[in-house]
Simulated assay, not measured.
Amino acid sequence: MPHPNLTEHDVLDDFDAREITLDGATKRVHVAGHGPAVIVMTEMPGISPHVARFARWVRDAGFTVYMPSLFGVDGAVPEAEAGMAVMQRACVSAEFRAFANRKGPNQASPVTRWLRLLARHAHEACGGPGVGAIGMCFTGNFALTMMLEPSMLAPVLSQPSLPLDDPAGLEIGPEDLAEVRSRLEREDLKVMAYRFAGDKFCKAERFKAYEAALGPRFVARVLPDSAANRTALPPFFEQVVNSPHSVVTAHLIDEAGQPTLAARDEILAFFTQRLRNPGSSPRPLEPSGSSSSR
């Protein structure tokens, strides 16, 4: 089906809005599609039309999308003032560890426990070998912490931005990180990660720290700033973010040959290989038309 207008509120009427209670906490989760489950975690300041577009691409690739509402107004176009208000509330929320210095360095956000249970719930509902997940921006690292859940097989980190006050911070505790690395090596799994070279919220220091912690299991893609969309951006991204940032949403250029579109295709191929064809040999993970850097 055609995607809704990205400049207008997305009513998300092709998703089933479910209230899912896990570990005593209830959250709205937008579900659509068929096949193995992929959890799409929204960037700041919420499930925008661009985030919903990406979720539909995942759905159309043959997966059941679970898109939890974690903050903001579902379907809203990201306005500058309203988006800043959402971000400020999230920064002081008990569910998130936005700052390393406020709640201690390298600790996972408490909401990741609920998300791990969502992965288990989705796997039981959808079957298949396991679950995939992508986090973006504020939720960027969550897919890595979710690897503590055995059903998680395909984690993608898109411009992971927490903690905001430590460019090299990883937003996961050292014991959990060691457990994740052990699992990656034991089960021959990988973590895919994406950022723009000039992203001021997800800098080179963070990817270097991930590489040091996870070794070759961390597959980094660094796109040139010239690959970012700069036209018709939502006000929040133009005025607040104000740098190349959102690889598969607002800064993606939906044209053949564009590095951001190649990154999207690589992510979909990663989900397909891990969740739909787990017995096949992994395809090369180098996206055509984009640059990569370790």
Rank of each mutant, 00 (worst) to 15 (best):
S292Q: 14
L170T: 14
A61E: 12
D199Q: 04
T272W: 07
P160G: 08
Y194N: 02
V77Y: 05
N5D: 15
E8T: 15
K27I: 09
V191M: 05
V86D: 00
V222H: 02
L22C: 04
E19R: 12
D254N: 03
P167T: 01
D23Y: 07
G127S: 12
N5G: 00
A256M: 10
G140I: 02
M136Q: 15
K200G: 13
R18P: 09
R217S: 12
F99I: 00
S226K: 15
I267Q: 12
V40S: 06
L184P: 01
L223I: 00
E211I: 12
P129N: 02
V156R: 13
A213N: 04
L6W: 14
E171C: 15
Q88W: 06
E255T: 03
C137V: 02
R221F: 12
E124D: 15
D265E: 11
E238P: 07
G289V: 03
A80D: 00
P287L: 00
S281C: 15
G130T: 03
G140W: 02
R195G: 00
K190Q: 08
V111F: 14
D60A: 00
V222R: 02
Q88S: 05
G215T: 07
L153M: 08
G75T: 14
M192G: 00
K200P: 00
F99L: 12
F138N: 10
G33V: 05
C137L: 07
D13M: 09
R56G: 06
D14H: 15
E8M: 08
A256P: 04
S161I: 13
P244H: 09
F96N: 04
S48C: 10
V191Q: 15
S288T: 01
P150I: 12
F236Q: 02
W114R: 13
L12N: 12
F236V: 09
R89S: 13
A82D: 09
F271S: 09
L70C: 10
A55R: 08
R183L: 10
P244S: 06
S161F: 05
F15H: 09
G257C: 03
S292Y: 03
L12I: 12
G75S: 11
G198M: 15
M152C: 14
R59N: 04
L214W: 12
N141T: 15
A82G: 06
S48W: 07
L285I: 12
P235H: 13
G173L: 00
S290R: 00
H3M: 15
R89M: 12
A32C: 10
G130W: 07
I267A: 13
P105M: 11
R206L: 00
A227K: 12
R186V: 08
E185C: 10
V58M: 05
G83F: 03
G169Q: 02
S288G: 14
G215L: 06
D176F: 03
P224I: 03
G140T: 01
G72A: 10
S226W: 11
R206D: 06
V131L: 00
R97S: 07
L70F: 10
A100H: 07
G215N: 04
V73G: 04
S161N: 15
Q258N: 05
A204G: 01
H3K: 06
S281V: 05
L22G: 01
A168D: 08
V247I: 08
S93D: 13
A212P: 04
V180G: 01
F196P: 01
P167C: 14
A85N: 02
K103E: 15
G83R: 09
A98K: 11
E124S: 13
Q273V: 09
L118C: 01
S292K: 07
